[in-house]
């Protein structure tokens, strides 16, 4: 999955808490860091990526800006009623260039990945690309 964008592989962003129509959540999974989804005020902010099938995920890479703290939750199957905590990470502030963070998920199986941005280095954050490594 590292080569092709998530959207080409059939993944979808099914939930996103902010909407600037020029920067829609689909930009997160188009594989392009020049396009982005942007939050439009207040925290927490979140989005959910639905994978086309249960997938073993060893890590995700998140390209973003202004994100300070990210929590990831996952759903093991489409039928699971609740998300389970997967991991969390503090992001360093970067100026003038994107944050790029690889986050290990220990090879657990998941159908849905929920990204919760609990705080930011500014009022607004952007997410440019999420990739999933098997």
């Amino acid at each position: 999955m590292t080569e092709a964008s998530l959207s080409l592989l059939g993944a979808k962003v099914v939930v996103a808490t902010s909407s600037d129509e020029n920067h829609p959540p689909e930009n997160i999974i188009d594989g392009n860091t020049n396009t982005f989804w942007m939050s439009t005020g207040m925290f927490p902010q979140e989005f959910i990526i639905r994978l086309p099938e249960p997938t073993m995920v060893s890590a995700v890479t998140v390209d973003s800006y202004n994100v300070k703290h990210l929590k990831i939750e996952k759903k093991m199957s489409q039928n699971a009623s609740q998300f389970e905590f997967a991991t969390q990470k503090e992001f360093q502030n970067t100026e003038g260039h994107l944050q790029s963070n690889a986050i290990s998920l220990n090879g657990s199986s998941a159908t849905d990945l929920r990204f919760i941005i609990t705080t930011g280095h500014d009022h607004f954050v952007s997410v440019h690309r999420v990739t999933v490594q098997n």
């Binding site: 860091t33 942007m38 003038g96 260039h97 994107l98 009022h123």
Partner: peptide, 19 residues
Amino acid sequence: IFHSLYHECRETIQSLSPG
């Protein structure tokens, strides 16, 4: 003020280089 803050921030982000 908040609206212009958003636009400033968006412009900054648009001019960023990859990480």
